[in-house]
């Protein structure tokens, strides 16, 4: 039920008047929040950006939820990637040593393998994810949504008493 509701909300966002830019940025920033350990200094900046910029909050929360689960699954990879960047890559050692002693930045926990691995990974992914989501939203609105609305299955469900009952309950709740 929760998953269905989640999908319904997502479809609602996709169908709404919110611009694809806002949805894409919300998704990309939510991804950073989800993939990296939540209680980190960089996430404070991400949260501030989500709140003060006109990005879609619901998409950010949706993306955060999805990518938190992904982060748990791929944590060993983040650890290895972070260890590679922090330890194995000798050329960066001087830079990390300098960063380690810079006020405020030293509080960012960048020297933690999972923080480093997941942050770099999510920053690299941010722009491609932004464009992919944007293209997806535009395509959905122009082509897919019309098709879905015309599916017999959807029409059948919408025609049932249960659905009209659900709509009434939902409207009461609003």
């Amino acid at each position: 039920m929760f998953v269905l509701e989640f999908i319904a909300k997502l479809i609602k966002i996709l169908r709404s008047e919110i611009s694809p830019n806002q949805i894409s940025w919300g998704f990309a920033l939510g991804m950073i929040l989800g993939l990296t350990p939540f209680l980190s200094l960089h996430n404070l900046i991400v949260v501030i950006l989500i709140i003060i910029l006109k990005v879609n909050l619901a998409t950010a929360i949706f993306s955060f939820g999805i990518f938190s689960a992904v982060a748990y699954l791929v944590d060993p990879l983040f650890h290895s990637f972070g260890y590679y960047l922090l330890v194995d890559l000798d050329s960066l050692n001087g830079f990390w040593t300098w960063l380690y002693n810079v006020p405020i930045l030293a509080l960012s926990k960048f020297n933690n393998t999972v923080v480093m691995g997941s942050l770099i990974f999510s920053v690299i992914l941010m722009i491609p994810v932004y464009f992919l989501v944007k293209i997806g939203v535009v395509n959905y609105r122009e082509k897919i949504d019309v098709k879905i609305k015309n599916w017999k299955f959807i029409k059948l469900i919408k025609g049932t008493k249960i659905y009209s009952l659900y709509e009434k309950i939902r409207d009461l709740g609003v």
Partner: peptide, 19 residues
């Protein structure tokens, strides 16, 4: 070169940089 550990999920390993 600190030895790579196997930390619990989402905890990671803190690397110390000597200066």
């Amino acid at each position: 070169e600190p030895e790579k550990q196997d930390p619990p999920r989402l905890k990671g390993q803190d690397i110390y940089f000597y200066n």
